[in-house]
Design a protein around this nucleic acid. Sequence first.
DNA 1: ACGGTCCCTCAAATCGATTCGACATCACTG
DNA 2: CAGTGATGTCGAATCGATTTGAGGGACCGT
Lengths: 337, 337
Amino acid sequence: MSTASLAFSGAGPIAAATRQRVLDAAAALGYSGPNPLGRQLRRGRSGIVGVVVGDSLRRSFRDPVSVQVLDGLVSTLGPLDLGVLLIPGSSDPSGPAVDPLLETAAMDVAVIMWGGTTDDPMLGALRRRGTPTVLVEGQHAPDVATVGIDDRGGMRQATEHLLELGHTRIASVTLPFDRCRGEGLVPPDQMDHLDWEITRRRLAGVTDAGVTPVAIWETPASLVEHGRTAGTALLSGPDRPTAIACQSDLLASGVVLAARELGLRVPEDVSVSGFDGLDLPWLAPDVLTTVVQPLAEKGAAVGHAVEDFLSGAGPSRRELAVTLRIGTTTGPAPDLS
Amino acid sequence: MSTASLAFSGAGPIAAATRQRVLDAAAALGYSGPNPLGRQLRRGRSGIVGVVVGDSLRRSFRDPVSVQVLDGLVSTLGPLDLGVLLIPGSSDPSGPAVDPLLETAAMDVAVIMWGGTTDDPMLGALRRRGTPTVLVEGQHAPDVATVGIDDRGGMRQATEHLLELGHTRIASVTLPFDRCRGEGLVPPDQMDHLDWEITRRRLAGVTDAGVTPVAIWETPASLVEHGRTAGTALLSGPDRPTAIACQSDLLASGVVLAARELGLRVPEDVSVSGFDGLDLPWLAPDVLTTVVQPLAEKGAAVGHAVEDFLSGAGPSRRELAVTLRIGTTTGPAPDLS
DNA sequence: ACGGTCCCTCAAATCGATTCGACATCACTG
DNA sequence: CAGTGATGTCGAATCGATTTGAGGGACCGT
């Protein structure tokens, strides 16, 4: 048995001839290699990384950001002989707070892709199980690894760009504030309930630039349609903003579409900026002004954080840089006089 | 130990009080439930379904069809306590033919989402391992379960719709013919190398309607940009077709965009039909004429096929019905005289 | 012929849970 | 009080691979 084991795993001294003999015998007996279950139990490792994708799959895979990060992650994990187990996030508020897979599935490391809020029950479940966890775009904690980007600095750059163009009436369209995922204008007192780290940071960037938004509109998800709703609402009232800084490209493109539908010219009447740096062919010929984040590298960074855990290192913390890409959707502020 | 096992699994007679006592003791000792690896080995089941998504993730998740089917699948598998392991398809022809995960990962059942060709090396690997396999949109074989739709009948309906509108010069834009994924006009002699089952069936539907396409254009993947390339090529030459039957909605919408760019009116100058029944907001105000397939149910059907295998039943075979949805992208053939 | 390498064989422990049978309790019931 | 269930305890086998250590040939050079 030892020899057979060596023949398959290749670890240890074994002559090529013997190896072949074992392999032949295995084929003759219909043995197709070591049973992964036994191997995993013995090794104490499953070779599986559980990845919590936000929400229902359909919703989160419609977001190119998640998909591209996931792609980068899988590419990094593949060579390490690690597989990705898909774990749906808490989609149904009436159901259990965390997916049963998170409680029972075999995984060496867990990744929460869409940061989540501070008191996320998923984090609690993972802590209880003692599963090392990588948090993407979440709040740092001593026992979890985090991967993020310079959300705050990026948003600050975008806002400063708008300031330089002379805009003073700047509104903001944001990602969800908390797990309730509301939609609509945010009253000032709700700013305290800003649980979602990514939203908080990107909003802080606006403030950093010295801007107090004339309106803040929360959306329940980063989707074009929610951007359109936001844009329609913000742009059809009186005293409309001359610039709208959005927290994602999909939201921004929805706002652009809404503006066009209202007969407003972009950027002559209203400037729009996004965040993420996606290619948005359907906005053609316009090119969105946006903060570009390195999505594939973000996925790779998550992969490296996983690798750190598996090699026994403690939780790591990574932050990637972003760059402002100026497109055609921002321009000088209109003369309001 | 037996009692503890019963306390956690709940299978077998155990008094509520004892159960609680066990749970409390477990909490006190820092034992967080049965180790999934031991459990799986004993049970002989991993509770994992390996899903091969075509190609690189980024490419296949840009296809809403895959995403929606996957979503339906995950929804069905969740209640059965099964998880989905993502397995990248063979993306790099120079690399290994099949992903190592397919050879070594623990899985009770495998699903190949994007049918594949007859001689797919992945099928061979799975057979060797004795892993029950569900093939989506693939060719039926005695030892695999298949889930498909009435591709042939659907395409026939779409084609007959074009015939009724008076079209005689009908071209077709197709999915890949084989694993080489060529792009361009298909010469007649290449029709023999039509390995991809889904492409073959949809093309057969056109023939069933009694139509011989004036041109057949193969695309390397179901993406808008490939549809645009195809549309540009087919519509800019002389003797352009008056109708183009596409094998997917993304391809069709690319063709529509190409037509618009060439200054052709849809459907007055050229009619375009698709396949899948997606919502394509960026074609607005047009609505694509297309063959609607039930994507979520398709995912559920895959889930049931998996369930069949796990309950000991043999490979099953399911085919779902499709319906023709007439939109605004098809109309009467132009008068060519 | 002898010491020394290599490589192979064999037996046994281990990973952690599930499950089975035998047996011990205990509370009821007739 | 004996009989009957329901439930808990204990020991042992099992799932399948990995790994270690002891020992045995085969072959090398001297």
